[in-house]
Design a protein around this nucleic acid. Structure first.
Lengths: 137, 137
DNA sequence: ATAAACTATAAAGTGAACTCTATGGCAAGC
DNA sequence: GCTTGCCATAGAGTTCACTTTATAGTTTAT
C-alpha cells in the first residue's frame, strides 16, 4: 500500500505519516521501500496508526508513545519500565474520568444559568447572587 | 492581592497570569490597577483561574475559553451560541469517557501481555499469535 | 540611600505536532 | 514524448501555550 492510500484510510495526511516515521513511531514491520524508493506499507501499519491515534486521544505525547510502542525484543528492564508506565497511565485515565464527571456537573450548571438567562434574565441574576455556578465568575 | 500572591495560590507563574490577561481571559472583575500601575486581583480572579484550569484539563483551547467565559452582558445571539457550545462540550466529554473506558481495556491487555512476557516469554509469544492485544501489533 | 525584591511592558524564544514549500525523480494516459 | 499526478527529501513555516529576556519603574528593609 502506498502512502496516499494509507493516508486516506487513516484520515491523515501523507506529511503526518512521514513525520511519524521520522519520529521513530514506525519501523520495518510497518514500512519498507520498493525498488523505486517509494514507501510500501503493511497492514500492521494501519494497526500501529490506530494505536497511535488512540493513545494520542488520551493525551500521550509522541515521545511517550515512541518509548512504549517499542518492540518486545527490548530488554527486561525496559519491559519493567513499560509495565510501570501502563500502571501509571491507568491511574491517570481513572482520575481523568472523575475530572470529566465534575466537568459535566459544571457544564450542567452553566447550561441551567444560560437557559434561564434567555427565559428570565431577572431570575438568572438572582441565581448569580446566591451561588457561583456560572461562566461569569 | 498582587500578582505573585495569586500566582502562588494558583500554582501558576506571574508570566502565565499576565499572558491570560493579554489573551482576554481576565477582565476588570478580576484585575484592576493600583495608583502605581501594579495589578490588583480580586477573589473572583481565583475562581476564574480555577475555571480556566478545569476547562483546560478537558482539552479546551484558550481561544475557546475566551468565547465561552464572556460576561453575560453579551447579546442573546451570543448566549444561544454559548448554549450550543455547552451542549456540544457535554457530548464531547461523554464520548471521551467512553474512549477512556476502551483505553482502559487496551491497557489491561497490554499489562497482561507485558507481565506474561516477564514470567513466561514462551506463553507471551503464543498470546501474540492468537490475538493482537499488545503494544507490538 | 542603597540594595533587594517586586512590579511593569514589549518582544523574542521554546517545544510539540504538525503543515507547507521547493525541488526533483518516477509512472500512467493520450 | 509530454503532461498530469504521485512519490521522494530537506528544510522552512505555523499554531498553541507558554517562557524567557531585556529594560525600567516602585517598594521595602537595613
Amino acid at each position: 500500500m502506498k502512502i496516499q492510500e494509507l493516508a486516506d484510510k487513516m484520515g491523515l495526511t501523507i506529511h503526518t505519516i512521514r513525520f511519524y516515521e521520522k519520529e521513530g513511531l514506525l519501523d520495518d514491520r510497518h514500512v519498507r521501500r520498493e525498488s523505486n524508493n517509494y514507501r510500501n506499507y503493511s497492514e500492521e501499519a494501519i494497526e500501529r496508526l490506530k494505536l497511535i491515534k488512540k493513545f494520542q486521544s488520551i493525551g500521550c505525547s509522541l515521545a511517550e508513545l515512541k518509548e512504549v510502542l517499542q518492540d518486545h525484543d527490548a530488554n527486561a528492564q525496559t519491559n519493567l519500565q513499560i509495565i510501570d508506565w501502563i500502571r501509571g497511565k491507568k491511574k491517570e485515565i481513572e482520575s481523568k474520568k472523575e475530572e470529566y464527571d465534575q466537568m459535566l456537573e459544571t457544564l450542567n450548571k452553566m447550561l441551567e444559568y444560560r437557559t434561564l438567562l434567555m427565559d428570565d434574565p431577572q431570575k438568572a441574576q438572582e441565581m448569580l447572587m446566591t451561588s457561583h455556578a456560572s461562566s461569569s465568575d
